[in-house]
Design a protein around this nucleic acid. Structure first.
Lengths: 336, 336
DNA sequence: CTGTTAGCGCATTCAT
DNA sequence: ATGAATGCGCTAACAG
């Protein structure tokens, strides 16, 4: 089928292209009669303006990019869900880019997006990212960015997070209340500020409850699953093994279960585990796992809303603001 | 920062725009020396061609759309993961659209995408979809479409599915082998061919094992969670309740767990459940749930590969082909 | 109220 | 091997 364009509509109606264009955008300077004729023909021929011509002309793409480490993870899926909902409501399109925790990919995406493909970026940092120079280039090109969850503290813009310090404190306290006295923290990435905050909450909770901190109980994990597995294994098979584990991400909790199974360590009993996790499938979960659950859907919506707010106000640089949502501790201790 | 364009590069180098354009696309008719000069300046100024101008001119967007019912679900997340990987490797961009099972939204997306925004579409049908006229319009506009999982049988194109009939048969047989004699099937949507196949497998397994089929044991669920909950509740609280349940989607299995909890029916024991599910977090799962797990990542990759294959061959209509991948039955029966 | 013209950034045809 | 000119489809400034 031949593309129906303004030109073809204009020809059919014996009008100028600009008249048709204005009629379709409901300009006040076009007669009701002409508008009606144009609209009805456009509808009849199923006219849809070419988005690329429009974007080229308007210097605005009505598209946003979401850059995130991974998607096979309920937290990020729910975030996307929230983003997509707000984008749809605003008539925007959503491009997805996955970094798989690679700083290199993250930088490549960002650099690529300076070409005008998107009007704004929503992003959660890769765990590998240490050098953030690529993030500054976005500013140079006047492309607003909003961070969510794995935020970049040093960039001045809107950041949507949760109360990670408090959650870390609560999670640790939860284990203490359950009788744990040797509590380990599994860090997902040294670089991420959210991880540092969770860990600080852990440390302070230990201190406030007069539990001695042991350095070997903090395990710094990375993107290498096998390495993580081995680290956790040596943690749990040590002479002085922990009786409680606080995992900063779900994936590490899963590894714990697997290691425990291999070492024939019981859960619950010898080891209690609490983890950040956003599996909505609470009832499908292993009943021994307590979780800190983040309001992921809401995070996505708020992050997107911040971006669209900036678009409406024609702001290219967002103000430096932190939006902090509250996570929920869900206890699923089967021993009670 | 000012946008760097072919024009600005040309000016700086005292060359014509067309020369710069050709140099950058490595045309044979440009001298090595000029190419070198152009490339180095382009790199220095971080030149990226404007994608919209390029798309307008080339009549091709280097973008694909993924339309699916939802994303907060491990199956679809993994599929997207696979799609994104292949798209990235081919230099394509991925737009995401969520229908939330609404036929109306699905049709609106499709109709919108006839404007040239994307070069192709990857899609999994909404459960509500009965009228498929909107799918035909894509053909009229020469936009190739590939279906995955929830495929549309009557459209001639590539469809990537799993062996749903066999899986349904195996799942039912699994319950029979575990001693169940009154087995219920929870259908997620009457309209979806994959659901019909899973059900047919269920029916044939019952027949082959001489188990009488009871109409009230087939529960047709929909997108209304509360309604589903009530249907499952009345199923399980009936005088003749099933002792085994085969859920066609994970969400319905979750509902079963919740209903069982409310009715104080034990799992495993009084009721055994098996469900299609793609939670990779096997070890976090309730140890009583056996699952049929689909190769979701692979499905995404194959679907995307089919589309890019068509692009390379400049085919607008894909051949009518069915790619069938194999699901895996994972037994997690804690009673053993 | 409507038409004419220009130009967004790029690729491409035609000329040299 | 390079330059000039055209047009993709659209919006917007200017003209009447």
């Amino acid at each position: 089928m031949d593309q129906v364009t303004l030109k073809s509509l204009a020809k059919e109606l014996n009008l100028a292209i600009s008249t048709v264009s204005r009629a379709l955008s409901d300009s006040y300077e076009i007669s009701a009669e002409t508008k009606e004729k144009v609209h009805s023909l456009a509808k009849k021929l199923n006219y849809h303006p070419n988005p690329y011509a429009r974007s080229l002309r308007k210097r605005s793409s009505f598209t946003i990019a979401v850059i995130l480490p991974e998607i096979a993870n309920n937290f990020f899926s729910l975030v996307i869900n929230g983003i997509e909902e707000i984008a749809q409501a605003n008539g925007y399109h959503v491009l997805i880019y996955l970094t798989h925790e690679s700083q290199e990919k993250e930088a490549a995406f960002i650099r690529h997006l300076t070409n005008g493909r998107v009007d704004g970026v929503l992003m959660s940092l890769s765990g590998e990212t240490e050098d953030i120079s690529h993030l500054h280039t976005l500013k140079e090109y006047n492309i607003p960015i909003v961070f969510f969850d794995r935020i970049c503290e040093s960039i001045h813009t809107v950041k949507v997070t949760t109360n990670d310090y408090e959650s870390g404190y609560q999670a640790t306290q939860h284990l203490i209340e359950k009788g744990c006295t040797a509590i380990s923290y599994l860090s997902s990435s040294k670089n991420l500020s959210i991880d540092q905050k969770r860990m600080q909450g852990y440390l302070d909770a230990l201190k406030d409850h007069d539990i001695a901190f042991r350095e070997e109980f903090i395990v710094f994990c990375s993107n290498d699953a096998e390495l993580n597995y081995n680290k956790i294994k040596s943690l749990l098979s040590a002479a002085e093994a922990p009786d409680g584990i606080f995992a900063s991400v779900e994936l590490l909790a899963i590894l714990c279960y697997e290691v425990c199974k291999e070492l024939k360590i019981g859960i619950p009993g010898q080891v209690k585990i609490i983890s950040f996790s956003n599996l909505r499938t609470a009832s499908l979960l292993n009943p021994s796992l307590s979780t800190i659950t983040q309001p992921a859907f809401e995070i996505g919506k708020q992050a997107a809303a911040a971006l669209f707010g900036a678009f409406r106000k024609n702001e290219t640089a967002l103000k430096d603001e932190k939006i902090v949502l509250i996570s929920e501790l869900i206890e699923r201790d089967s021993t009670k």
